[in-house]
Simulated assay, not measured.
Amino acid sequence: MATDFWASTHYKRWIVDRATLRQARADDLLYIDDPEHLAFLAIYFAEVVGKLGKKLRLPQRAIATATVFFRRFYLKNSYCETDPFIVIAACCYVAAKAEECPAHIKNVVSDARQIFCHEPYNIKHFPSDNSKLAEMEFYLVDDLECDLTVFHPYRTLLALCKSGNGSEDASAQEEEAGEVGAGIPADDGPRYWGTGQGQLELPPNGLQTAWFIVNDTYRSELCLLYPPHLIAIAALYLTCVFHPATHETVSAVLAASSSAPASSSASTTPDPPPRRSSRQAAERKKPAQDPLEFLAELNVSLPLIATIAQEIISMYTLWDRYKEDSGSVATPDSSRNGEDDGPVVTPALLTVVLMKMREARLLEIAHPSSGRPVAVNKMLERTQAAG
């Protein structure tokens, strides 16, 4: 199993550009009323993967791998021609195997039915036959081209950071990060570690905040656009903004650096040399670490890191409008939330949007406007005929 990201299929095959993403969603755009709903569907499906993964008691790393498998599958397929829920179940099933925490196929089917067949999804056609999931597993692995090794940003976070948390938290984070996709070897470190010495020392819970930000990025398609180590560095950059203790550290260092030139210019007579005891105390006292300087010394493009950070913030803006609501089924004419950021979007609404897309596509296949038959993926069509 590959441990070098630069030599992996993840880097060579599955880092794509935005034009590829737009092309992947071209068919879906023909059957959706509001193109913005496609961005919400990315959040919606990540939430569904997370719910099923937690129900199966999968570690976060396996849930992240399942989400990446789902994103990769829909680079080659469209929502309107497939059943995303059977694909989600297959992604969790395959990811559990790939991350060496396998789940029994019967448990996957039963837990998936328990989640999908009730509010807010109401997917009554989800199969109860285990063979349907096994068949979908075959199609999924085929579309993934058997590239089942996924690199995640978690290892980079642990390699770059020294957390103020206890040893138990550190060992738990090591176990959660896993050995698969361990990151970039020491020999290749200068490619992005740069000349920075040591590790970034974060205040207590600072690393946990960065970890949570990385988890949140899987609600977008950033895992298809950027290498995982860049996402990890962008999460650290946002931690300097969002985490109160880390933000205070950055502010204190910046204030000290700005006042240092003023104090040196105001002094006209040199200070007497310190006594031996005070000199030893000064040597023992380490200067405060500047997190921004540490990030700047990494051999990465800071404008690119800022771009990724901005995309994460944009994802949070959309996510603020995504409200979990298991009440009555919503309609596309949902009421606004009373603010200027747009209407509230619920899972029930997106389920309706998804069903309408599929119905419109099936109607187009049955009665094409050109009079010619429409080509479909027969393998997936057989899998979706479960019931």
Results as ranks from 00 to 15, higher is better:
Arg219Trp: 09
Phe138Val: 15
Glu137Lys: 00
Phe85His: 14
Arg71Glu: 11
Ala309His: 01
Ser369Tyr: 02
Val150Leu: 02
Gln289Met: 08
Leu224Asn: 05
Tyr121Pro: 05
Asp341Lys: 05
Ile365Met: 00
Thr149Lys: 06
Tyr44Asn: 07
Thr249Ala: 09
Gln384His: 11
Ala366His: 06
Tyr74Cys: 05
Asn377Asp: 09
Met315Glu: 06
Val49Arg: 02
Pro59Arg: 05
Ile365Cys: 00
Thr217Ser: 04
Ile365Val: 12
Tyr154Ser: 02
Tyr93Gln: 07
Glu47Arg: 08
Pro102Gln: 10
Val353Thr: 04
Ala252Val: 14
Gly194Thr: 04
Asn205Ile: 08
Lys323Met: 09
Ala234Ser: 09
Ile233Val: 08
Thr307Cys: 08
Tyr93Asn: 12
Lys132Gln: 15
Ile305Arg: 00
Ala66Lys: 00
Val141Ser: 04
Arg336Cys: 13
Gln310Pro: 01
Thr65Gln: 03
Glu297Thr: 13
Arg276Asp: 15
Phe242His: 14
Gly387Asp: 10
Ala232Ile: 11
Glu145Thr: 12
Glu135Arg: 11
Ala360Ser: 06
Asp34Glu: 10
Glu145Tyr: 05
Leu236Thr: 04
Asp147Thr: 08
Gln289Trp: 01
Thr246Ala: 04
Asp188Gln: 06
Ala282Tyr: 13
Tyr79Thr: 11
Pro332Gln: 07
Val68Thr: 08
Pro373Ser: 07
Ala348Arg: 04
Glu201His: 09
Gly206Gln: 01
Ala296Ile: 12
Asp333Met: 11
Phe5Trp: 09
Gly164Phe: 05
Ile105Leu: 05
Asp143Tyr: 09
His37Asn: 13
Val353Ile: 06
Thr156Pro: 01
Ile115Thr: 08
His243Pro: 01
Tyr322Met: 09
Arg372Leu: 03
Lys132Met: 15
Leu254Phe: 14
Ala177Met: 06
Leu222Thr: 12
Arg361Lys: 04
Leu133Thr: 07
Phe126Asn: 08
Thr307Trp: 03
Met379Arg: 13
Ala134Val: 15
Pro270Arg: 15
Pro204Ala: 05
Gly327Pro: 12
Leu362Asn: 09
Glu99Met: 02
Thr3Gln: 06
Ile184Arg: 03
Thr195Lys: 12
Val87Cys: 11
Leu41Pro: 02
